[in-house]
Simulated scan of single mutants.
Amino acid sequence: MANGRAAVIGAGLAGSAAARALAARDFTVVLFDKGRGPGGRMSTRRAETPLGPVRFDHGAQFITATGESFSEFLEQARTAGAADLWTGRTVSIDRGGNAESLREKTRWVGVPGMSAIVKTALDGFDARFGRRASHVSGEAGAWMIHFEDSPVEGPFDRLVLTLPPEQLIEFLARSDGDFSEIIAEALATKLSPCWAVMTVPANAADPGFDGAKLLGGAVRWMARMNSRPGQDGPDAWVLHASPDWSEAFLESDADTVARSLTEEAFIRFGLPMPVWSQAHRWRYALVTEAPGTPFGLDPSGTLGCAGDWRLGPRAELAWESGEALGQTLAD
């Protein structure tokens, strides 16, 4: 016998982990996401460029696992052909241009892109995309989800919210119920943005690394997509701006951002200027001040929030947050 119906808003790692935990306790689960497909910050962008088609992992560059649950899931994803280890040359480069290898660790990536990992986590679930939820109504154990320009869904016995803090505050402020504690924690949370630039140089060049953590300048990280398992096609790179630079130029034009970061990569490392480039703004990229607890609950114990913003800026922490919330709601 099913325990009841549960809904998850947000089909990323936290949402999928919550869904799996609820389903394990015999809840019937449906997930809703405003995006066109799974991934969130583990999205993979496909692009047609003058040199051919390319896949860009323009959000999370790789993930690591230390706990049993997430490690087991990643092994399952590898068995399914959706994940593998990235063994590219990774370095740290200081302001003076001195490079040293990053410390050895197991770095996982999705195959052929990061979104494949999330797709695997959602396998077998009813996940509905292009559904932007605006608020909830009803009461504990009978939650109704309202969407922009689409029908109301419900009732649901349990409800999981994996929205970023700022969006969560707006969502709950429009909703029925006492969410004052969750809202207070979200208000106290701080996140940094990140501008990401996807670029295809005019010709291939080897700066001596496949992934680099940089100090000084606007670019904080850059990685060669072709060095990742399952990636082929023309030479292609992702450039991430530093949090401070991203904050300072948060509202800048995307073309200006793309030009600034690709010019810096050319000046510092000789990366040829692009035949194609595009910038994407991650407004809620990295949590810098978190509540420190895995999830938040409303007084009824039937609605909760989860996400990496609860614990810290790592994919595994998003998984642990969602899993813990799902298990608690299922009890």
Rank of each mutant, 00 (worst) to 15 (best):
T256M: 07
G230W: 11
F209L: 09
P291F: 09
A212Y: 15
T199V: 11
W245G: 10
K213V: 11
A223P: 01
M225D: 02
A236Q: 10
T256Y: 02
S246K: 06
D298G: 07
Y284M: 05
S242G: 06
S260H: 11
R268H: 04
G292S: 07
M273D: 03
L271K: 04
S300D: 10
R224A: 11
R268C: 01
A204H: 11
I267V: 15
D255R: 12
A202V: 12
R281Q: 07
R228H: 07
L286K: 15
D206N: 14
W282C: 02
G216H: 14
L297Y: 14
H240W: 04
D232V: 13
P229E: 12
D232N: 15
L215H: 12
Q278S: 12
M225E: 13
G233W: 09
A218V: 00
D210F: 08
V257Q: 02
A241M: 10
P201L: 05
E289Q: 15
A258N: 08
T256V: 05
V200A: 10
L261F: 02
A236F: 07
F209M: 06
V219F: 02
R259Q: 08
P234S: 01
M222I: 15
A223K: 11
D235N: 05
S246I: 00
T288P: 00
P294F: 08
D235Q: 14
M198A: 11
L214K: 12
S227C: 14
F269R: 00
A196D: 08
F266V: 02
W237K: 02
F295C: 04
V219A: 04
D253H: 03
R228I: 10
P274F: 01
A223M: 13
L297I: 04
D244G: 10
P274W: 04
V200R: 05
P274Q: 04
A202D: 08
P201K: 01
E264T: 03
S260C: 14
P272I: 05
L250I: 07
E289L: 06
I267M: 14
P294K: 11
F269G: 00
F266E: 05
Y284P: 01
G208C: 04
G270N: 10
E251S: 12
A196M: 09
F249Y: 14
L286I: 15
S260E: 09
S277H: 12
G217T: 01
L214P: 03
V197K: 05
W195C: 01
T302V: 05
W221V: 11
D244C: 03
G296M: 10
P272C: 10
S300C: 00
L261A: 00
E264C: 04
V200N: 08
W221Y: 10
V197L: 00
F249C: 03
